[in-house]
Write a protein that binds this DNA or RNA. Structure first.
Length: 580
RNA sequence: GCGCCGGUAGCUCAGCCGGAUAGAGCAGUGGAUUUCUAAUCCGCCGGUCGCAGGUUCGAGUCCUGCCCGGCGUGCCA
């Protein structure tokens, strides 16, 4: 069920069905002709050749012969096996611009919440970002963080209730190491200032020391055991580390406009795993193998899923299942996305399979929204070795863009410049990440991150600022324009693209691919920019041209582009500055 | 070994579950500006879509085999 009704495309579909005597629900493929001069919407006739026992070019002729203009469709021409339809431009323009104007910030969004059969709003729980405490958010965290953030926004636009879930790594022996390191070091470190850096340095030094002093490992394990047993000292320290880390994360999230509905650590599940194990064991799904508690998955062609180690300690699969149970109890999700690196694909397949075998109500609703890794010099980046801090990347991007603004727009106040530099600098970083297909690995490259020309976030934001400037300078009231004055092909291409937005959002949501929206933004910006540039050749082609009526019509179109651009950028988590 | 992901222009990538002549950006090159913000636009150059078969009216897209790269492959997450 499409969330967005396009009466023009509907008219084309019914024209084809009528001409060929097809059932009312017969599928009619719509596409774009290779060349805009051929028409606006193309329909291939191949699919009907078999049932109609006729050659596609002849079928095309038949459709054209039966076609009568109407419903906003003005013309049908046969081009070999295709029928190309042309739309009534002013009718279409009126419809697109009115729709965008009426929907405003909600253009591209569905107009009503998406409901389940029981009347409740459809809910998606999106697990993203999910860093480990006592370490900085590093550049590579941007992937999960911004893909997840965009998916939350896209789902909301599509009528879902979206729960952003930040699943913190706050448990396990590494945290025992930190406790041990802390108690060995001078314990008067001030964690209020750059505490995460200090914690991380302690951790790294401790690991280094462990190499020469094996007794330290036992010490760390002992500390973790104390933590597990609820020892007051261990607990208090751990909570302090956690709070310091969270405060630090929050600063980065605030810069990027990222929010969560739930922040929950692995520690939260300590007493929620045993019920899961009992549930699975009661159904005879578990077995002891080599001293470990496992669920056999040989039928699924996978290695067994480990629930408990030989020493009885639980594993992350156990935690993930317990957390899924919790998430379902809490929000009754219809879909659950896990925006986690593709290196964990097998892990997700395994515990999804266990959930299925265990007969949980939410089986089959989880998806591993996998993404490729960030590499430096061809090598995978991990937070253990000298990863680049996300803070630093954001700082550098906004500094560099600030210099560009100072150069290109010298009249902007320093204060305003600072603000815009943040928006555009972050835009560069985030867009560089979201414009790629999720599963691709990406090479960390300063030059590419800091380029502001071509297919970049700043390019898109610039187009938006440009339109804002045009609208400001026009000094005209919007509305009531005579849209039949929009006659150029450039204007028409822009209008066609504007109408395509809701469909792109829908696809991006379905496939959990934000880069579909990013690609759309680029397309729209290029189309607008081509149109706009005509004004450099001929003043009569400017938006704010001498003829008042034409200017009003163009202004209406430009304004619709601005609105659509802003909405699309918002879905990606990018700001749309009015000037830059 | 097995599994998953990737291989498209010199480089970085799109290609909307099989549709017409495979598209962008960067780099190179030639143009456009007393700017409705040139962070732009237009032209040119550049592709045996890893290789070989197969399915189909039609394959970058689906199937099989192979090659290259990455990741994963029971007690880390």
């Amino acid at each position: 069920m499409s969330s967005f009704h396009d009466p023009f495309r509907a008219a084309i579909r019914s024209a084809v069905r009528g001409a060929l005597d097809l059932p009312a629900d017969a599928e009619v493929q719509l596409g774009a002709p290779p060349n805009p001069a051929m028409g606006d919407v193309a329909v291939p006739m191949f699919p009907y050749a078999r049932t109609l026992r006729n050659a596609p070019p002849r079928i095309a002729q038949a459709v054209v012969a039966a076609f009568e203009p109407g419903g906003g469709v003005s013309e049908a021409t046969a081009a070999g096996p295709y029928v190309n339809f042309r739309l009534d431009r002013s009718a279409f323009l009126a419809w697109v611009l009115e729709t965008i104007d009426a929907r405003g910030d909600a253009y591209g969004h569905v107009d009503a919440p998406l409901l389940r059969d029981d009347g409740e709003q459809r809910t998606v729980v999106i697990d993203f970002s999910s860093p480990n405490i006592s370490k900085h958010l590093a550049y590579h965290h941007i992937r999960s963080t911004m893909i997840g953030n965009a998916l939350c926004r896209i789902h909301r636009a599509l009528g879902w209730r979206a729960i952003g879930f930040n699943f913190l790594g706050d448990w396990g022996t590494t945290h025992g190491m930190l406790l041990a390191a802390w108690t060995r070091a001078d314990a008067d470190l001030d964690l209020d200032e750059d505490g995460v850096t200090k914690l991380n340095e302690m951790y790294v030094a401790f690991r280094e020391a462990m190499k020469t002093d094996p007794s330290l490992e036992g010490e760390a394990r002992a500390w973790f055991a104390r933590l597990e047993q609820g020892d007051a000292e261990a607990r208090a320290l751990w909570e302090r580390f956690r709070a310091v880390s969270l405060a630090e994360f929050e600063k980065v999230y605030a810069r990027l406009g990222v929010t969560f509905e739930a922040v929950c650590g692995e520690s939260f599940y300590e007493d929620r795993m045993e019920p899961v194990i009992e549930h699975l064991s009661a159904q005879g799904l578990t077995a002891i193998d080599d001293g470990a508690l496992v669920v056999d998955l040989s039928e699924q062609g996978m290695p067994p899923c480990l629930l408990k180690k030989q020493d009885g300690a639980t594993l992350y699969a156990t935690r993930d299942i317990a957390s899924a149970v919790h998430r379902h109890e809490e929000w009754q999700f219809d879909r659950a996305l896990y925006v986690v690196g593709k290196g964990q694909t097998l892990h997700f397949k395994q515990w999804f399979a266990v959930v299925e075998k265990g007969g949980y109500a939410f089986a089959g609703r989880m998806e591993h929204t996998a993404f490729g890794q960030i590499r430096m010099g061809g090598v995978k980046v991990s937070s253990r070795d000298g990863a680049v801090r996300l803070h630093d990347v954001l700082d550098r991007a906004s500094e560099e863009i600030g210099a560009v603004i100072a150069e290109k727009n010298p009249t902007m106040s320093a204060e305003r410049r600072h603000e815009v530099a943040q928006q555009v600098g972050y835009g560069a970083i985030v867009f560089a990440d979201l414009s790629r297909e999720r599963e691709r690995d990406v090479e960390f490259d300063w030059d590419r991150l800091l380029s502001f020309e071509g297919d970049t976030g700043p390019y898109c934001q610039y187009q938006h600022a440009r339109i804002a400037s045009i609208v400001r300078k026009a000094g005209r009231e919007l509305g009531g324009a005579d849209l039949s004055l929009l006659t150029t092909d450039d204007e028409w291409q822009v209008a066609l693209l504007l109408a395509a937005f809701p469909e792109r959002v829908e696809k991006a949501g379905k496939r959990a691919e934000p880069h579909w929206v990013a690609g759309y933004v680029l397309e729209l910006c290029r189309a607008f920019s081509s149109w706009y540039a005509q004004g450099s050749q001929d003043p009569a082609l400017k938006v704010n041209c001498a003829d008042d009526d034409t200017a009003r019509a163009r202004l209406a179109l430009a304004h619709a582009v601005q609105q659509t651009l802003r909405n699309a950028l918002d879905l990606l988590g990018l700001a749309a500055p009015e000037e830059m």
